[in-house]
Design a protein around this nucleic acid. Sequence first.
DNA 1: CCCTGATTCGC
DNA 2: GCGAATCAGG
Length: 175
Amino acid sequence: MNWTDERVERLKKLWADGLSASQIAAQLGGVSRNAVICKVHRLNLPGRAKSGGQASVRTKRTTTAPRAPAYAGRTATQTTTRTVSRSSGSAQLKQDLDVVAVEDVDTRPIEDVVVPISRRLTLVELSERTCKWPIGDPLQEGFHFCGNDSGEASPYCGYHAKLAFQPTNERKRAR
DNA sequence: CCCTGATTCGC
DNA sequence: GCGAATCAGG
C-alpha cells in the first residue's frame, strides 16, 4: 500500500487519539501494525509515553544483538529528549481479566456488577478470543463490540456471557 | 498466549 | 521510504 497523504493524516489522527498501532492498521487496512509503527517513527510523531501504560521503556538494545551487525562501527546511542505532553489518552485501553473462578470455600453470591468496560473494537478488529457482544446501534456511528477477552470457548466475555446465556434453570428451580 | 511499541535491516 | 522479523515487556 502507498502512504498517501490522506492515509498519513488518518494515521496521525488515530495515533493522536491514543489508538494502538494494530487498531490503526486495522482501520487503515492494507498495512500491518508494524508498518504503522514504523511510519509513526518516520513521521517523527511522539511515541507512546511510558506513562502508566504498557509497552515502551525500551532500554536501549545492548543485550545480545539479534542480528550480527555487519559493521560494528555504529553506536546507536540516541538521547532523544521526548517531551510528551499527553498524560492520558482519550481511548485508554484496559485489558483486565475478570476472573469468575470460584474456588474458595466461602459460598456467597458473587455478583459481578462491575465489568462493563469494553474495548470498543470495530468489526475488523475482532479476533478469535475477543468478546463479540455488540454495543450500540449498528446503523449508528460509534457502534462497536465489547472486545474483552472471551476466553476461548465462549464468544463473549465473562460478563456478557452471563447476559447472553442466562440460566434457564433459574426459573424452574425457583420453586 | 494475548497484546503493546521499538529497533534493525534487507529490499 | 517501506515493512517483516525480531526484540523487550505488560
